[in-house]
Design a protein around this nucleic acid. Structure first.
Length: 106
DNA sequence: GCCCTGACCCATC
DNA sequence: GGATGGGCCAGGG
């Protein structure tokens, strides 16, 4: 697999996530053309240079849980109107990004 | 080149 | 609904 192409695709998709909504790693992996590669999405986002200004705080795992040890993430989310549940998870049913909208765009 | 780890997902219990 | 186990892949020691 072409790692650069994969990460480029990931960045492109994540940048397309509208404000106030969240996506899961699995969705990103699927849209980037590499399903089952959700783990790589997490790693790609972890290593992403910040000058690309990618809203990776809008990406959570399939349970709505945020990145561990990244306290700023919930602050950024709340700035966009996304309020977290008591257990610190995002309400996916409420804020999940509609993957079909992106598919239509392509 | 092997082994462990990780911002994960899914099926199953 | 939480817990568990298996599968996935790249990076670092």
């Amino acid at each position: 697999m072409n790692r650069k192409e994969f990460s480029d695709k990931v960045y492109e998709i994540v940048k397309d996530i509208p404000s106030g909504q969240v996506a899961t790693y699995g969705m990103i992996a699927l849209l980037s053309g590499y399903p089952l590669r959700s783990r790589l999405v997490g790693q790609a986002l972890h290593h992403v240079p910040d000058f690309l200004s990618i809203p990776c705080h809008r990406v959570v795992n399939h349970q709505g849980r945020l990145a561990p040890g990244w306290t700023d993430q919930q602050q950024l989310l709340s700035n966009e109107g996304i309020h977290l549940k008591e257990n610190g998870c995002v309400d996916l049913k409420k804020y999940l990004w509609d993957i079909e909208l992106y598919k239509l765009k392509c």
